[in-house]
Amino acid sequence: MVKLRARCLLVGDTAVGKSALSHVFHSDGTLFQKNYSMTTGVELLMKCVNIPETDDSVELYIIDSAGKETLVEACEKMWGVPSLLCLVFDLTSEQSFANCSQWMERVRAHCQGLHVPGALVGNKSDSSARREVQASIAQEWAESQGLEYHETAAKEMENCDALLLSLARAFHSLYQERRETIQNLSPG
């Protein structure tokens, strides 16, 4: 049995639905905040996720960071060194997807050269009529960045559990890999 701890950065453009996702995580899928209230700093949420078929769990320290351009710099100071990344865009906004590479660069500058696993999330999949980003294109870009691709609708609480579990699993498998490497080290 092991309890892992991961600092998970939740980033992406303003109004893509980061805080909405965070609230759904926090309420185990019972709460969606309809009225937009802009995050102006960073908000911390702790969520413990059990890894199915094991006794292991991952405590995710989710850092919901403001997406608004003028606030980003101040927020970055509170990011620390991330263990996991959750990069969110709005499926109904081509621009929010285009900005993902810039977010990726920002995050990398905080990783101290560590490989940080995580997910690219296309949110607002409920608004299918206004969709501007094709799944295949997002998927391809996610793969090129070493991220898993998920589509969610925080509004319908759809796929949010799967996203959370996938983040926890990514960190858990990294742990298992590293443990194996250490077990096989030649004695010093």
Binding site: K3, L4, A6, V58, S83, R178, R179, I182, P187
Partner: peptide
């Protein structure tokens, strides 16, 4: 030196 203590995430 074959046995070890391992950290489980974050510093």
């Amino acid at each position: 030196t074959k046995t070890f203590w391992m950290s489980t995430g974050m510093f």
